[in-house]
Amino acid sequence: MKNVKFSHFFLFIIIIIFLLWSVIQANDYFTWMLEVSPAVIGLLVLLFTYTRFRLTTLSYLIITILVVLMFIGGHYTYADVPLFSWLKDEFHLQRNNYDRFGHFAKGSFIIVIRELLLRNTCIKPSKWMICITLSIILAISAIYEIIEWLVAKIVGRSAKSFLATQGDVWDSQWDMSLTFIGAILSLLLLSKLHNHIMNKELK
Score class of each variant (00 low, 15 high):
F48Y: 13
F48P: 00
F48K: 12
F48M: 11
T49P: 00
T49V: 09
Y50V: 06
Y50K: 07
T51D: 13
T51R: 14
T51V: 00
T51H: 11
R52F: 11
F53T: 13
F53Y: 14
R54C: 09
R54D: 02
L55A: 06
L55D: 01
T57D: 12
L58D: 01
L58V: 13
L58G: 03
L58F: 11
L58Q: 13
S59E: 05
Y60L: 12
L61N: 05
L61T: 15
I62D: 04
I62H: 08
I62A: 05
I63E: 04
I63H: 03
I63F: 15
I63W: 12
T64K: 04
I65A: 13
L66H: 10
L66T: 04
L66A: 05
V67P: 02
V67A: 15
V68I: 15
V68Y: 07
L69S: 13
L69T: 12
L69F: 14
F71Q: 07
F71S: 07
G73H: 09
G73N: 06
G73F: 09
G74D: 10
H75R: 15
H75W: 14
H75I: 08
Y76L: 03
Y76V: 04
Y76N: 06
T77H: 05
A79C: 05
A79Y: 06
D80F: 12
D80L: 09
P82V: 05
L83N: 00
F84C: 02
F84E: 04
F84N: 04
S85R: 06
W86Q: 11
W86H: 09
L87C: 11
L87Y: 15
L87E: 06
K88F: 03
D89T: 11
D89F: 02
E90C: 03
F91E: 10
F91P: 07
F91M: 13
H92L: 13
Q94R: 13
Q94K: 13
Q94Y: 07
R95D: 09
R95Q: 13
R95E: 10
R95G: 10
R95L: 11
R95V: 08
N96E: 08
N96M: 06
N96F: 10
N96K: 06
N97P: 01
N97C: 10
N97S: 12
D99Q: 07
R100E: 02
R100G: 05
R100L: 10
R100D: 03
G102H: 04
H103I: 08
F104G: 03
F104P: 02
A105R: 04
K106M: 14
K106V: 01
K106T: 04
G107P: 05
S108M: 14
S108K: 00
F109K: 09
F109E: 06
F109C: 06
I110K: 07
I110N: 06
I110T: 08
I111E: 05
I111P: 03
V112G: 01
I113T: 12
I113M: 03
R114E: 03
E115Y: 01
L116F: 12
L116A: 13
L116H: 00
L117K: 07
L117R: 03
L117A: 05
L117W: 04
L118M: 12
L118C: 02
R119V: 00
R119D: 05
R119N: 11
R119K: 10
R119Q: 09
N120I: 01
T121A: 01
T121N: 03
C122F: 08
I123F: 12
I123V: 15
I123E: 10
K124C: 01
K124D: 03
P125F: 08
S126E: 07
K127G: 15
K127W: 14
